[in-house]
Amino acid sequence: MGGPIGFGIMGCAEIARKLCRAIGIAPNATVVAVGSRSPDKARKFIADNGLPATTRVHGSYEALLDDPDVEAVYVPLPTSLHAHWVIAAAGKGKHVLVEKPPALNTAELDRILEVCQINDVQIMDGTMWMHHPRTAKMRDLLSDPNLFGQVKRTNSIFCFNGSPDFLQNDIRVKPDLDGLGALGDAGWYCISSILWANDYDLPKTAIAFPNPVKNEAGVVLSCDASLHWEDGRVATFHCSFLANLTMDLTIIGSKGTLHLNDFIIPFEESSANITFASDSLLNDAVTAWATLSQKHVVSTDLPQEALMVTEFSRLVSEIKESGSKPDYKWPTISRKTQVVLDAVKASIDSGSKPVQIVF
């Protein structure tokens, strides 16, 4: 196989610092260039993140895409800019790791995916928790019919208490930059975890809870919704910029229950816990639990964001070196998540009417 995949970072957003570190840690990736509308800002980003002095500075995103050593781009731009720049990157044959949500709606995402497919470009969104080895261990537990049974109920929560400055100035509260607000930012994680728990079997209906909190510009700051399957399965989620930092995921089966309290970012970088119970019972006196939950600890040598970069770069290398086709698993997951997000937004906009989900 060839050398590491050369990444260009498109923009100097705060989240790009985390991915810059991840690319540096990943064994098969390296940052070769940073593009910004401000060359000085790009130079400062390179210096602040300890990148080599040889890292090229580009004073425009177009110049970054024209760099022949840039094989893949990381796009941490506001969601409203994703379609333009991801399509531009794919048109130049650059593979794309894009922040979530990848688009403002499914129609926009379909345009992105079509161009990526035409140009044999790998695309993946930046949902990092799915690449942690804990996620694979969770799948093993949920797949055991004797321990877990069938999924019955899923509940997912991601919220954090945004500062006054965040609520006033962050791009995630601006309708022209990230108009999906808390639903697009925090809600994406909730929906992705629910779909993962249900093995990507899409629900049939989405119903937003009444009275979501919006700012003066109409951007959602906090909302809740329920998802419903025809066989009786139900999921609920809460996403918010207005409550204490919480990252809970609960998956209840006919025989078992799985709990996470840090499903998006583990409490510790090198290991993560799963709380799992099966055939739970109370004691004869009904004063205590007769069967206690078990804690599974999953260790990792690389943080989840570096594992994501490693997997993405592996796929790019296979396309580059072996002529493989892009793996459509990841964009399919992105599209299913976007479809459900669209339905929840439509329910919010309609005053909490049920919305049918069509893939």
Rank of each mutant, 00 (worst) to 15 (best):
W129I: 01
D284K: 10
K44Y: 05
V286A: 14
F312E: 03
H95I: 10
H82A: 10
K204Q: 13
S334I: 02
V316G: 02
S226K: 10
P133N: 04
K255S: 10
V86H: 05
P303T: 01
I194W: 01
L202V: 10
I251N: 04
Q304Y: 03
M308E: 12
Y74M: 11
V219Y: 04
K204T: 07
S36W: 05
D48R: 07
P101S: 09
I87G: 06
R335C: 03
F237R: 02
L195V: 03
D125L: 04
F263V: 12
Q117D: 14
H296I: 13
M308T: 02
A225D: 03
T55V: 15
S240H: 04
K320S: 10
K44T: 12
E230D: 15
V75N: 11
T127N: 09
D284I: 08
Q117I: 00
W129H: 11
L307R: 10
A42P: 02
T310F: 03
A16T: 08
H131P: 00
A235L: 03
I348R: 02
P39R: 06
I265D: 13
A186N: 15
K100Y: 11
R153T: 12
Q150L: 13
L221E: 09
D262R: 14
S270A: 14
D110T: 08
R172M: 09
S192N: 12
L202C: 11
L202D: 01
T287G: 15
L177N: 03
F267D: 03
N283Y: 07
M308P: 01
P303L: 03
L77Q: 08
L109Q: 09
P76S: 11
E62N: 15
D327R: 05
D327A: 11
P52M: 07
P102K: 08
W196I: 02
N273C: 12
R314C: 07
G218I: 01
L167T: 05
N146T: 06
A72V: 09
D140M: 12
A346P: 00
Y74R: 00
A89E: 08
G50L: 04
G24A: 08
V339S: 13
T300G: 11
V115S: 07
P133W: 03
I357E: 01
E108M: 11
S163C: 05
R56Q: 13
F312K: 02
